[in-house]
């Protein structure tokens, strides 16, 4: 049975698109058939993060308006043959699509895929309503900042009102060094405030910037963020995975400093 997952946050710039790309790629790595749908009409981004921007012929709006079939618009990933991207339109706006049309499209995609990942635009307007219309579950992405958490709380309320049954939280861009000195809310603090299930935490990792530069999601790599995303994917398919230790005081100096602090 296929599952439709919307990746949403309310606030912009917290990492929805990066999360969508990494979760989609990670699920493909786990041998699932996955399609990533960029629902941010007018501000197309998922294609660049996936490194597929040069292969776009048709887009989401073309499919919905009947200019082409869904199979023609979907682009096969560079590395995984079981991963596809349905890109958004760059020259249209969110009013080009209605929630009913999205539901119809998703029903069609369900026949061919195990997972349909919807990358939601920021905000709570038409684009958001389109993205959540056909979703079975949601991944809420937030950072440990007051504004992002406030927006996440509002989004959770809206998802509950729209009967999205399963809502999980991803705390993104956590900096353990700042948490340790008390200058950043901890993962526990964020979970405590939002009171929803935590499915994973992703550290603030410069490898994310590098992987986005290259257009290759880093999920599954040795980088801490890559491991964190892979764990999230395993949890999505129902595996029990212990939380990653993001403290990672693995280098020689921090271990030495740790010894001194204890004494």
């Amino acid at each position: 049975m296929s599952e439709v997952i919307v990746v949403t946050s309310g606030k912009g710039g917290v990492g929805k698109t990066t999360t969508s790309a990494n979760v989609g790629t990670g699920l493909a790595k786990l041998n699932k058939k996955v399609v990533l749908v960029d629902t941010d009409i007018g501000l197309r981004n998922l294609d660049v993060v996936m490194g597929l921007e040069n292969r776009i012929v048709y887009n989401l709006v073309d499919v919905i308006e009947g200019h082409c079939r869904a199979k023609q618009a979907m682009i096969k990933d560079k590395r995984y043959s079981n991963l596809y991207l349905l890109p958004s339109a760059q020259t249209r706006d969110k009013t080009a699509v209605s929630p009913e049309q999205m539901v119809t499209l998703i029903e069609e995609l369900k026949e061919d895929f195990d997972y349909i990942i919807l990358d939601c635009p920021a905000g709570i307007e038409q684009g958001f309503k389109n993205a959540i219309a056909g979703a079975d579950r949601a991944l809420i992405v937030t950072t440990p900042e007051v504004s992002a958490i406030r927006d996440a709380d509002r989004i959770i309320g809206l998802l509950e009102a729209n009967e999205v049954k399963k809502i999980d939280l991803i705390v993104n861009r956590i900096r353990m060094d700042m948490v340790k000195r008390g200058d950043m809310m901890s993962i526990e603090d964020v979970v405590d405030i939002l009171a929803i299930n935590l499915i994973g935490a992703v550290p603030d990792d410069e490898n994310i910037v590098i992987s986005t530069n290259q257009g290759e999601p880093l999920v599954g790599s040795d980088a801490l963020a890559g491991q964190a995303y892979m764990n999230i994917c395993r949890r999505i398919i129902g595996e029990e995975v212990p939380m990653l230790d993001l403290g990672a005081n693995n280098n020689f100096w921090s271990k030495l400093m740790g010894l001194f602090k204890k004494n």
Binding site: V146, R150, R154, M178, I193
Partner: peptide, 18 residues
């Protein structure tokens, strides 16, 4: 700590939001 300040501010903010 500024982290605690953020948490306290958010708690109050979300009560009135909710």
């Amino acid at each position: 700590n500024s982290g605690d300040v953020a948490k306290d501010r958010l708690k109050l903010l979300l009560i009135s939001d909710r």
